[in-house]
């Protein structure tokens, strides 16, 4: 059980309904103390009362020191976290991780942001920073239709200034990612946050952008093992079988190995573990490339061979 002293404790100060399925929560300290700082594009883990932990992007201006805002889409067919967030009430207390940033804003250059639905959230923290810096930017919002668009009302000034372009697929105005990437300048940075399909498309079309293409998926990657393998524990000496469809984390837990884990979606890196032998199939979306030769994330990552040895 997570102790409150080992997390940031906040209370829900306000809940705003942005659409039928999207709520925005404002989280603040009980004594209105400053909260740990964050940078544009950051996210944090929310510990829900049931014990589930979910990652959400911070969507307020990082210059606001006394509250965090998160916006959460209720996914009735999801894993349960978003439904629980939608049941939370004003005044309830929540435990949070410190903010972390796997989608930092590049220090210079024009910025083109593409949001698929609820993928708008990290850009809500970037826009105020870009405005202050006076940098050129544009934001593309992709949604099925105006009813599914929870954010336009928040961004009315940007619509008037032409910096926000809305693409409603239901009206045949789907964003042409190929054309968008073809128009990217040599110093521009492209940021995408959205569902897997959008990210995969951008990843293949935008490969030539190299490090100027920044992406954040939401929802867990395909996580279960495609074929069975064995996890060997170098220090404690056990051999733990991972069956088809099971995650390495689940197999370790079933064998009584206690691994700290939070998002269980390859984002937070709480479960990051050193490996000594074998070839991991890295499926996290957060670990620096340099760390991948020594560490893996058992919540989503697998094994390319028959066995892998962990430093446990």
């Amino acid at each position: 059980m997570t102790k409150s002293i080992h997390r940031v404790t906040v209370e829900i100060r306000q809940i705003e309904r942005l659409s039928d399925r999207v709520r925005m929560l404002e989280l603040a300290d009980m004594d209105d103390w400053e909260l740990p700082p964050f940078t544009a594009g950051a996210h944090l883990n929310v510990h829900l009362p049931s014990g589930l932990v979910r990652s959400y992007s911070l969507c307020n201006d990082p210059a606001e020191r006394k509250f965090y805002r998160i916006a959460v889409l209720r996914e009735d067919e999801g894993r349960g976290g978003s439904r629980q967030v939608h049941e939370l009430r004003q005044g309830e207390r929540l435990l949070l991780s410190l903010p972390r940033n796997h989608l930092p804003l590049a220090p210079e250059g024009r910025v083109v942001m593409v949001a698929g639905g609820i993928g708008m959230t990290p850009f809500l923290s970037m826009v105020p920073v870009l405005e202050r810096q006076g940098r050129p930017y544009e934001l593309h919002l992709c949604a099925r239709d105006s009813r599914a668009d929870a954010f336009s009302a928040l961004l009315a000034p940007m619509i008037r200034s032409g910096k926000l372009v809305r693409h409603y697929s239901g009206t045949g105005a789907r964003l042409d990612i190929q054309a968008l990437i073809a128009g990217i300048g040599t110093e521009d940075h492209v940021y995408l946050c959205g569902p897997e399909r959008m990210i995969s498309e951008a990843q293949s079309l935008g490969a030539g952008l190299g490090e100027r293409l920044h992406m954040e998926r939401f929802g867990p990657a395909g996580v279960g093992a495609e074929k069975a393998y064995v996890v060997k524990l170098a220090r404690s000496g056990g051999n733990i079988p991972v069956t088809t469809g099971q995650t390495m984390l689940d197999a370790l837990r079933a064998a009584g190995v206690d691994i700290p884990a939070s998002c269980e979606a390859g984002v937070c890196l709480d479960c990051r573990t050193r490996f000594l032998e074998g070839s991991p199939d890295h499926r996290d979306i957060a670990m620096p490339v340099a760390d991948r030769t020594s560490h893996l994330t058992p919540c989503v990552s697998g094994c390319l061979g028959d066995s892998i040895t962990l430093d446990l």
Binding site: V8, D29, W33, E34, L35, L98
Partner: peptide, 10 residues
């Protein structure tokens, strides 16, 4: 001082 863990010191 700070009233809770993780909060910035004031």
């Amino acid at each position: 001082i700070a009233p809770r863990s993780f909060l910035p010191m004031r």
